[in-house]
Design a binder for these strands. Structure first.
Length: 574
DNA sequence: ATCGCGACTTAGCATCCTTTAA
DNA sequence: TTAAAGGATGCTAAGTCGCGAT
């Protein structure tokens, strides 16, 4: 509920929120001096397949435009979107606009998309059946077409472009219970696109004959190469940026980590500061204190206001009273949907004064009302800025993640094999992912994989039984008897059998460990923190100190993204 | 102070590609 | 040799936060 109901939240404004307009060394907001690139590439025009869907049991002729939208829906049959009323409603409303006023198709219930769906399955199968050779040529052809769009030249340096492909039309797939799911995302045309390019550089030729760009700008205070308005949310933009490996992105990434490192020098004072305010008589001050505490302790997101036409999710400042439960004597249970509608469910012990304060904020409010009714992200960030230049809520997340990694790596790395050291890193990585609540959905095959592992372990264990029986016999000098196929077993010395037992034991242990890790990580996404929250210098320095090849931790894209961190001193501490 | 715009980072999932196990 | 698992990459949605207008 943006705007409404948030009108009169008063708060003494910070008298001195002196902020640097631009990060030092970035030259007055200027991001580049020269910029050349080739614009964007458009998806190919729609190719009609001519497969007729059924309406009321009868085949229906559709124009290519109508068929295109029908196909978008048909191919989603086996996703769970296809069964959601909101999705169907939005799709059908938008499709009917394409069908036109007097079209025979009026009732979704009478639509049968199965013929198109089956065509789609056949197409998929056909693609799968292609030989590796054919696939390779196809890939190479595509690469050739796209090559020129992949690169930009920024201040004389060739840099990769991130997303030079214009998004194809489709049905909007919002996350969670998104009110706009299923709406038609229309095709983007050159006349939708604004290009940003250096003054002297040649303007990219519009790739669709007879059409032209909406606008060409020469703005060197921004880093985008092109943008268009999001057709689903016309007030939002879709940007084309350089890739993560570019020095422009690398520089700001480094600045991000440097800022959160700076927080280390202020954190003690900040904690003392908000702890004092837990019992401040001014509610606003108390709310700021408690919100800051939660952001610091639990790495919650700031929580901006959202519109009604977005999924209903919250962050710290937008927590509702029903998202928190006070559990005596001093535990708080959090249960809310955060970014991407990922559930945050956590019970934590808090300081007594925090517990009291939260009870107080909840008092007399109905479910759905704001827990922190006197503050919002901009007030909170304004306050944080007074405590440290450039400090905002998200800095705490970066700080929390990186300091945790640094700490665990320093405490827990022991002499041992590279494999063991990597295991320590992964444990630390997992710890961070849990703090940041980075989740993934369990893979469809998880259950069956677990069953298979259990079967395997059982099998190994029964082998172990047999081996131990053999060992006993061998020790007593008895013959080992016959194996399961009735053949006589070779009589081995007890020592030899003992060795077999040890090997098998190791195998079982490893399997059980693998199983535990797999189960443990089934809902935890490690990648997000590696990409966005963990200062790569911590990792690089650790690899250097412990002689772990950096390639064991960073894949090709991370190595490219983090070039700026590679020459770090081995003794670097976050 | 408030609002809405604009630009940028962060996020999970789908798909493609490679490695590993059977 | 093949299939399954796992990792890398692509895609685009969904956040954060600064800023200028009012």
């Amino acid at each position: 509920m943006k705007g409404k109901g948030k009108l009169k939240k008063n708060m003494k404004n910070s008298q001195f929120s002196k902020i640097m307009k631009v990060p030092p060394g970035s030259g007055g907001g200027k991001k580049w001096t020269t910029l050349e690139h080739n614009g964007v590439i458009f998806p190919p025009p729609y190719k009609p397949h001519g497969v007729k869907m059924l309406y009321n049991g009868k085949p229906i002729d559709l124009t290519p435009e109508q068929e295109e939208v029908a196909t978008m829906f048909a191919v989603m049959k086996d996703t769970d979107y296809a069964a959601k009323p909101t999705f169907i409603d939005n799709f059908f409303t938008d499709w009917r606009k394409v069908l036109g006023k007097n079209h025979i198709i009026k009732n979704f219930e009478l639509c049968d998309f199965t013929p198109i769906y089956e065509w789609h399955l056949r197409e998929k199968e056909r693609k799968k059946q292609m030989t590796t050779e054919e696939k390779k040529t196809l890939r190479e052809d595509k690469l050739k077409q796209e090559e020129k769009y992949m690169w930009a030249v920024v201040d004389g340096v060739k840099e990769k472009v991130g997303n030079f492909r214009v998004e194809p039309p489709g049905l909007f797939r919002g996350r969670g219970e998104h009110p706009k799911m299923g709406k038609l995302k229309r095709r983007i045309l050159p006349s939708d696109i604004t290009i940003n390019i250096g003054k002297g550089a040649p303007v990219p030729e519009c790739p669709i004959p007879g059409e032209s760009w909406k606008e060409v700008k020469h703005d060197n205070t921004v880093t985008w190469l092109a943008f268009w308005n999001d057709p689903i949310n016309p007030k939002d933009f879709k940007y084309v940026f350089l890739a993560a490996s570019s020095s422009l992105k690398g520089q700001s990434d480094k600045e991000k980590y440097e800022k959160s490192r700076k927080l280390k020098g202020h954190i003690q004072r900040i904690r003392e500061n908000y702890t004092k305010d837990f019992k401040n008589k001014d509610v606003t001050r108390r709310q700021i204190a408690v919100a800051t505490y939660l952001i610091d302790k639990l790495a919650l997101r700031a929580g901006n206001e959202k519109d009604d036409d977005e999924a209903d999710t919250v962050g710290c400042c937008t927590l509702k009273v029903d998202n928190v439960t006070c559990m005596p004597p001093n535990q708080i249970q959090f249960d809310f949907l955060g970014k991407d509608s990922i559930r945050y469910f956590n019970t934590v012990e808090v300081e007594e004064l925090v517990y009291k304060a939260i009870e107080g904020f909840r008092a007399g409010k109905k479910p759905g009302q704001d827990l922190f009714d006197k503050i919002d992200t901009s007030r909170l960030n304004a306050h944080l800025k007074d405590l440290m230049p450039g400090l905002t809520a998200k800095v705490f997340r970066t700080y929390n993640a990186s300091i945790t990694l640094d700490g665990i790596l320093h405490e827990e790395t022991e002499d041992g094999t590279v494999l063991e050291k990597i295991a320590v890193y992964q444990r630390a990585n997992k710890e961070v992912a849990i703090i940041c609540n980075h989740q993934r959905s369990v893979s469809k095959s998880h259950e069956s994989q677990m069953t298979r592992m259990n079967e395997k372990i059982d099998e190994l264990k029964s082998q172990m039984e047999e081996l131990k029986a053999d060992l006993n016999k061998a020790k007593k000098g008895k013959p080992l008897g016959y194996d399961s196929e009735g053949k006589p077993k070779r009589n081995l010395a007890p020592e030899a059998i003992q060795k077999k037992v040890a090997t098998l034991e190791g195998k079982i242990e490893k399997m059980e460990m693998d199983k535990r890790i797999k189960e443990d990580l089934k809902t935890v996404a490690l990648g997000t923190s590696k990409i966005n929250y963990l200062d790569p210098r911590i990792t690089v320095a650790w690899c250097k100190r412990h002689e772990v090849p950096i390639e064991k931790i960073f894949n090709k894209s991370l190595l490219a993204k983090f070039v700026w961190a590679m020459d770090v001193d081995p003794e670097f501490r976050f």
